[in-house]
C-alpha cells in the first residue's frame, strides 16, 4: 500500500508540474506573440494582420493556372516577422516572402535592378526567377518557376490585402 501511495504521489506531482509547464507554454505566446518560435501555419489572410501586425502585400496579378487559393501560408516571428505565401500547380509555383525590417535577404553579387521597377534586385537561379523589392519597412522576395518577365507584373501589382 505504501509502495502504491509513493508511486501515486510521484505521478500526481509529475502531472501537476507538467500541467503548469503546458499552461506556461501555451499562454506565453498569447500574451507575448513574439515569443513563439519557428513557423506558424496561417489559416486565412485576415489572420496575418492579427499575427504580424501588418497587412500582407500580394500581387493582384496571378496567372490563372496557379489557382485562386494559396497552397501554404506561414508566418515566422524570428529572426524578423516574416509572412510567406505560396501558390502552386504541378511544377509551377509563385512564392511571396514579406519580411518586416532586418537586413536585405541574400542575393548573388551579379543580381541586377529590374527595369522600370524601383528598389528591385533580380536574378535567375536555374529554372527559378527571383526578385527582391524594398517597399517601405518591408523586404519582399518574389520567387517563381514562371518565365522571368512575370516578375515585373508581380512587382507592379503588389497591393496590401
Amino acid at each position: 500500500m505504501d509502495r502504491l501511495k509513493s508511486l501515486f504521489s510521484l505521478l500526481l506531482i509529475t502531472a501537476s508540474v507538467m500541467g503548469v509547464l503546458r499552461v506556461v507554454h501555451v499562454s506565453i505566446p498569447m500574451v507575448f506573440p513574439q515569443t513563439r518560435q519557428g513557423l506558424v501555419d496561417v489559416g486565412s489572410l485576415a489572420e496575418v494582420r492579427r499575427l504580424a501586425g501588418f497587412a500582407p502585400l500580394l500581387p493582384a496579378y496571378r496567372p490563372a493556372l496557379l489557382g485562386e487559393q494559396a497552397a501554404t501560408m506561414t508566418f515566422a516571428y524570428h529572426p524578423q516577422p516574416t509572412f510567406v505565401i505560396v501558390w502552386r500547380a504541378g511544377d509551377q509555383y509563385l512564392s511571396v516572402t514579406q519580411q518586416q525590417g532586418g537586413p536585405m535577404p541574400d542575393h548573388p553579387p551579379l543580381a541586377q535592378p529590374l527595369e522600370a521597377v524601383p528598389g528591385s534586385t533580380w536574378w535567375i537561379d536555374g529554372t527559378r526567377s527571383r526578385v527582391i523589392l524594398e517597399r517601405g519597412q518591408f523586404w519582399i522576395l518574389i520567387e517563381t518557376s514562371l518565365p522571368p518577365r512575370e516578375l515585373t507584373r508581380f512587382a507592379d501589382t503588389l497591393t496590401p490585402y
Binding site: L21, H25, P29, T35, R36, Q37, L39
Partner: peptide, 13 residues
Amino acid sequence: ERVAWFNSARLAD
C-alpha cells in the same frame, strides 16, 4: 515548437 510539451525558449524570450 510543434512537438515538445514545453519549450523553454518561449519563456526565455
